[in-house]
Every structure is written in structure tokens, then in C-alpha cells.
């Protein structure tokens, strides 16, 4: 029972994060900032929903597959984002910057 509640909570949280991310995707002013919003969906949304589902599934093969999906997402989504950012930069999409632009610390 407790497990159920926990899993529901997690799933709902995940759903909420997804929606937030999507809103961000819409609201953000330029391409790079939108990518940040998208990464919320990829990480927090996905993670919470998957964890919720894992709790639902209990200890079984389904869990294993859910974990596999999770690992897959966690491995690939940053790669895609990274490559995307880089390709965009290479193609001359200028990121919108706040006043203090390229600051090279260290």
C-alpha cells in the first residue's frame, strides 16, 4: 500500500516535470535555453516515471527492462543534446547571451 502511494507520487511528479519541461520548451526565448528545458523531460521526468513504474512492477523482468530503458535514456539523451548543441553552434546558431558573455574562468 505504501509502495503504491509512493509509486503514484513518483509517477505524478514525473508527469509534472514533463509538463514543466514542455512549457519551458515553449516559453524559452532561444534555441539553447530551450534545450535546457527539454533536458528536464529527459532526466527528471523520465527518471521519476520510470521509478514509479518500477515500484509498481515489483521485482521482475519488467523491472530489469525499465532499468534498461532508464540507462539507455540517461546514456543517450545527453549525447544527443550535446551533439545537437554543437551542431547548432557549428551551423552558426548564435546563443542568446546575458550581458557578461563568454567568460573564460580558469
Amino acid at each position: 500500500m505504501l509502495l503504491d502511494i509512493a509509486s503514484w507520487a513518483l509517477i505524478l511528479l514525473g508527469g509534472a516535470f514533463c509538463i514543466t519541461g514542455a512549457i519551458g520548451l515553449l516559453r524559452m526565448p532561444d534555441f539553447f535555453t530551450r534545450m535546457h528545458a527539454a533536458s528536464i523531460i529527459d532526466t527528471l521526468g523520465a527518471a521519476f516515471i520510470l521509478m514509479g513504474l518500477i515500484l509498481q512492477a515489483g521485482f521482475s523482468l519488467v523491472t530489469v527492462k525499465l532499468i534498461a530503458i532508464g540507462i539507455l535514456l540517461f546514456l543517450t539523451s545527453p549525447v544527443a543534446t550535446h551533439a545537437l548543441a554543437r551542431a547548432a553552434l557549428a551551423r552558426g546558431v548564435q546563443p542568446m547571451l546575458a550581458k557578461g558573455d563568454v567568460s573564460s574562468n580558469s
Binding site: L72, L75, T76, P78, V79, H82, A83, R86
Partner: peptide
């Protein structure tokens, strides 16, 4: 040359 891509691809394939 995409270091990150290369490594993840190597792991995944």
C-alpha cells in the same frame, strides 16, 4: 572526433 559520442556509441553498439 566527437569524444562523447564516440564513447557512448562504443558502449551501446
Amino acid at each position: 572526433g566527437f569524444l562523447v559520442l564516440r564513447i557512448v556509441a562504443k558502449m551501446l553498439i
